[in-house]
Design a protein around this nucleic acid. Structure first.
Lengths: 336, 336
DNA sequence: CGAGCGCCGTGGAACGTTCCAGCCTTCGGC
DNA sequence: GCCGAAGGCTGGAACGTTCCACGGCGCTCG
C-alpha cells in the first residue's frame, strides 16, 4: 500500500530501499550507536538516491527539545541591534542552533504576540535585545521557566549581560566636563528602550549634581520630525547648553544634525557624546565621540549564559554580567 | 498512569480537566467545527488554568506544512539588508508567518549549511537576500521544489524582485556626466554580491562606452583595510578620475573616506554616487547622492511572490518583478 | 565444548497534534 | 410515529522521528 502522496521521502522509505529497519537508518543518520560499515554504506547510498532529508520537526517533537533560539529585538533598523543580532546568530550557529528573529518595533502588543509565536514553536530559549514598557513579559517567561537572557541591558529576574550603564554615562559626562562644558543636557528618543533610558538618565542626573554642572531638561528627539526637534534644540542652545550626552548613537546622530541646522555647529559650538559604538559613527565625516559597548563580547557571553541555562538548572539564580564600556573620543567633542 | 514528567500540559491534559475528548479541545483551539457554547467555555477555562500552549511542532508535523519562512542574508551588518530583513519580517508576521534568519557572511559553505538547517526545519519557503558565488544553490532548491524568492536582485530560475540595475547605474552615470565628469570609475567591495556586482559593472561599462567617457579600472575596496584602498584611490585620482559610481552605499561610504584621506575632498575634487539608499546616507554630514531602491515595495512584493508560490503551483513559471530605482541627489556630487 | 558477552540490528511505543469517519441525540416534517 | 438530517462529540489513525528493550549470532575464554 503506497500511501505516499509524492511528498518528501522519509526514514521508512530509506529503510525499505536499503533493506534495513528504520531504527538502523536512524542510527546511521544520527551517527550514533554501532552499525556495521557495509550497512552504513547501503543506507547512505539510499539517502543520496532518494534525496532524503531528516525532518527536524519530528525529531524535535519526540526529543522534547528544539535547537531553535528566539531573538526578540525592538528595532532591527538600528545598526547596533542589527550587528548584535548578526553576532548572536553566528554564535548560535556555531553551537548548532538556529535563530528565529522577532522584530517588535518597540510595541508592547507586537512583542507579546511575537513571543507567543516563538513559545508555540517551543524555542529552546529566548534572547531579549531591547523591548518595550515595563517588561512585564519577563515575569511571565520566568514563571513559565523559559530560558531567557537579556542582552545589552540587565534585569535581576533573568540572566543578563550588559554594560555598566553608570560607568558609561560617567565616561561621557566626565569627558565633557573635562573639556570645560558646564551646562549639559541629556538627549534621548522614543526608540530608546525605557528601562535603559531611565538608568542612563538617572546616572546622568546624579553625575551632573556631583560634578556641579548645570543641567537642562532632557531632550526627546522624535525621529522623522526634525522640525520639532529643532525647536527644542534651539531652545537648549540659547539657554547656554554646550554639552550633550545622548542615550544612544542614533539619537546622537539626529542631535548632531539638528544642532547644525539651528546654527550650533559641532564641535565648535556644541559637543555631543553618543552611546553604543555603532560602526559608522567612526566615519570621518561623522566622527562621533561615543561610549562603545563591547558587542562581540556581549553576544558571546549572552549566548553562553543562555545555553548554560538551557542545559542547566532552570531554578539556578540568575547571573548578571557587567562589561566595561569604553569611551572613543572623536571629533564631535572639543574644548569649550 | 501519570507518565507526565512535569513538562508542559498537552491537549490531553486539557481534555481530561474539562471532561471532553481531545478532539473537542482541538476543535475549540482551532476555533473550527461546531462546539456548543457551554463546552467551549469549559475548555477555555481549562486552557487558562493549565497554562496550556499548543505545540506548533506537532501541529506542523501532522499538517505537513509550517508557517516559517527562512531568510538568507549575506550581511546583516549592512543597514540596507538589515532594513530589508526588518520589513520582510513585518510582512511575514502580518501573514501569520515567523521568520528564521540565516546570516552567511557571504561564505558559500556557511550558506549551504544554513540553508540545509532551514530545509531540515521544513520552512514553507525561502527568501534569498544576497548570496555568494554562482548561486548553484538555487538549482538545488528549484530541483527540490522549495518555494524561493530572490529579493533585491533577480534570477530567471526563481521568483524574484529587484530594481532595474541598468536603469539605476544609468541614473548614476548620467548624473555624473551631466555634471561634467568625463573620467569615471566603478567602485565595489568584496562584500557586494557577485552577480549584482557583475550586472552593475557591465551596465557601467556599456554606458561609459555609449557616452564616450574615459573609464578607469574598477576599484575594489577591501573593507577594514583603508591603507590599501588609499593607494588605489590615489592612483585613480592622479589619473584624472573625478566621478565615481559605487556598487553600493557601504562601498561609497568607504570611498568617500578614502578620497578625503588622499586629498580629494568630495564634492570639490571628486563626485561619488552610491547605490541602495541606506537611510543614514541622508545625514547632512554624509549627503551621499545615491540610487535608492524602493525597500518597502521590494519587501512586500517579495513576500507576496513567495506566499503565492507557497500556496500555488510549484511548477508555474517564475516571475520577475523589476522596480524603478530613484536617484536622490545630495551633496556628494557637484559640477566638475 | 558450553557459557556468556559483545556486537548489530529490530520492533514498537511515544511525542502532541489534526482530521476523518462515525456515533448518539434531538428535532422537524410528513 | 417514523425517518432523515443536522448538530455535537468522540476514537483512532497518521505525521516522521527517537530510543529503549530485546533477540540472534559469533567469538572468546575457561
Amino acid at each position: 500500500m503506497s500511501r505516499r502522496l509524492a511528498g518528501r521521502p522519509t526514514i521508512v522509505d530509506v529503510a525499505r530501499l536499503s533493506g534495513v529497519s528504520k531504527s538502523t537508518v536512524s542510527n546511521v543518520i544520527r551517527g550514533s550507536a554501532t552499525v556495521s560499515p557495509g550497512v552504513r554504506e547501503r543506507v547512505e547510498a539510499a539517502v543520496r538516491e532518494l534525496g532524503y532529508r531528516p525532518n527536524a520537526l519530528a525529531r524535535q517533537l519526540v526529543q522534547q527539545r528544539t535547537s531553535t533560539i528566539g531573538v526578540v529585538v525592538g528595532d532591527l533598523g538600528n545598526p547596533f541591534y542589527a550587528e548584535l543580532v548578526k553576532l548572536l546568530e553566528r554564535n548560535a550557529d556555531a553551537n548548532g542552533y538556529t535563530t528565529m528573529i522577532a522584530n517588535t518595533d518597540g510595541q508592547l502588543e507586537r512583542e507579546a504576540a511575537r513571543v507567543e509565536a516563538l513559545l508555540d514553536r517551543r524555542v529552546a530559549g529566548l534572547v531579549m535585545l531591547q523591548f518595550s514598557g515595563e517588561r512585564t513579559i519577563l515575569d511571565q517567561l520566568v514563571a513559565e521557566r523559559i530560558p531567557v537572557v537579556v542582552v545589552s541591558s540587565t534585569d535581576p529576574r533573568v540572566d543578563s549581560v550588559g554594560v555598566d550603564e553608570s560607568e558609561g554615562i560617567a565616561l561621557a559626562v566626565q569627558h565633557l566636563v573635562r573639556l570645560g562644558h558646564r551646562s549639559l543636557a541629556y538627549a534621548t528618543s522614543p526608540l530608546v528602550e525605557e528601562r535603559t533610558n531611565r538608568v542612563r538618565y538617572d546616572s546622568f542626573r546624579t553625575l551632573c549634581d556631583e560634578l556641579g554642572c548645570l543641567q537642562a531638561a532632557p531632550l526627546v528627539l522624535a525621529p522623522l520630525v526634525p522640525a520639532a526637534a529643532d525647536v527644542l534644540v534651539r531652545r537648549l542652545v540659547e539657554e547656554g547648553v554646550t554639552g550633550f550626552a545622548a542615550a544612544n548613537d542614533v539619537a546622537a546622530l539626529a542631535l548632531l544634525e539638528s544642532l547644525e541646522r539651528v546654527g550650533a555647529p559641532v564641535p565648535q559650538r556644541a559637543s555631543v557624546v553618543g552611546f553604543d559604538g555603532i560602526g559608522l559613527t567612526g566615519l570621518a565625516r561623522i566622527g562621533l565621540t561615543t561610549v562603545a559597548q563591547p558587542l562581540e563580547e556581549m553576544a558571546s557571553v549572552g549566548l553562553r549564559l543562555l545555553l548554560e541555562r538551557i542545559a542547566g538548572d532552570p531554578e539556578a539564580p540568575p547571573r548578571q554580567m557587567l562589561l566595561e564600556p569604553r569611551l572613543i573620543v572623536r571629533t564631535s567633542t572639543a574644548e569649550r
